[in-house]
Simulated assay, not measured.
Amino acid sequence: MHGPASPGWLLVALCAVTGAYCVRRMRGAAAEERRTAGDEALMGFGMAAMAVPTTVFTPPSWTWPVYAVVFGAAGLRALWVAHKGAHHLHHAVGALAMVYMAVVMGISAGQGHVHGGSSAGLPLVTGAFLLYFTGYVLVSGMRLIPVPGVAGAPVGWGDRPELTQACRLSMGIAMVAMLMLI
């Protein structure tokens, strides 16, 4: 990721921990929840890999097309299963944003850019993704507000819906940060 090293490492840590939690959610979940958690784990680990500061490690030029293909395939899969729920559409938008960032970062790397700013990207596309993910973050944050009087069967820490929502919120925040740094 182009930009200062400290925010890059914070993004790496946030996204890697989120990805690990999503892998944990895959255990013992129903098939559909397992697939959703797997999609989110892929996104978390992919974002972590893309957020590694270029001052520490500059990926080889073939990395960016690989990211674009992997996330392009993930986006197509999300669109394919979108009839099952709106969250799959969000996964498709997220995957498309990752493809866009991979292309922009590949172009930036080819031009020798080492600092942030959307000089290599299309400001309109970057702005549209920023608008979408900012709205997603605001809505996800509102969903974390507790609802009084809701009691249910006790669940383990890996199955708590508020942790799942917090992970989705943190990935949305990370996506906003990454889009601002490309």
Score class of each variant (00 low, 15 high):
Gln111Lys: 14
Gly106Pro: 11
Ala166Cys: 11
Arg25Ile: 01
Thr164Ala: 14
Thr134Glu: 08
Val70Tyr: 09
Gly106Gln: 12
Glu162Arg: 15
Val150Glu: 00
His115Thr: 15
Gly110Gln: 06
Lys84Pro: 02
His113Gly: 10
Trp64Tyr: 06
His88Val: 00
Val139Met: 08
Tyr100Cys: 00
Leu122Tyr: 10
Gly85Ala: 06
Val66Cys: 09
Met180Ala: 14
Ala174Val: 02
Ser118Met: 11
Glu162Tyr: 14
Arg168Tyr: 07
Met105Ser: 09
Leu96Pro: 06
Thr164Asn: 12
Met171His: 03
Ala37Trp: 06
Cys167Asp: 15
Ala102Pro: 00
Glu40Arg: 10
Gly8Val: 09
Ala49Arg: 09
Ala30Thr: 08
Ser61Met: 08
Trp9Glu: 03
Pro148Gly: 03
Ala92Val: 07
Leu169Asp: 05
Pro7Val: 12
Gly19Asp: 04
Ile182Val: 15
Met175Ile: 05
Met142Gly: 05
Gly19Thr: 02
Leu76His: 04
Thr63Pro: 00
Val147Arg: 10
Val176Tyr: 02
Pro7Phe: 11
Val155Ala: 09
Met171Ser: 04
Leu10Ile: 01
Gly152Lys: 01
Ala5Thr: 13
Leu124Thr: 11
Tyr100Arg: 05
Val155Ile: 07
Ala177Ser: 03
Tyr67Phe: 07
Arg35Met: 10
Glu32Thr: 03
Val155His: 01
Gly141Pro: 05
Gly72Thr: 05
Leu14Ser: 13
Thr54Asp: 13
Leu42Asp: 06
Trp157Lys: 00
Ala29Asn: 14
Gly72Trp: 02
Met98Leu: 10
Ala78Trp: 12
Leu124Phe: 13
Cys15Leu: 03
Val99Thr: 07
Val23Phe: 03
Ala177Asp: 06
Gly3Asp: 12
Val137Asn: 04
Trp157Phe: 08
Gly106Asn: 11
Val12Met: 13
Gly19Ile: 00
His115Ile: 13
Met98Trp: 08
Thr58Met: 13
Thr36Glu: 12
Cys22Trp: 10
Trp64Glu: 07
Pro146Asn: 05
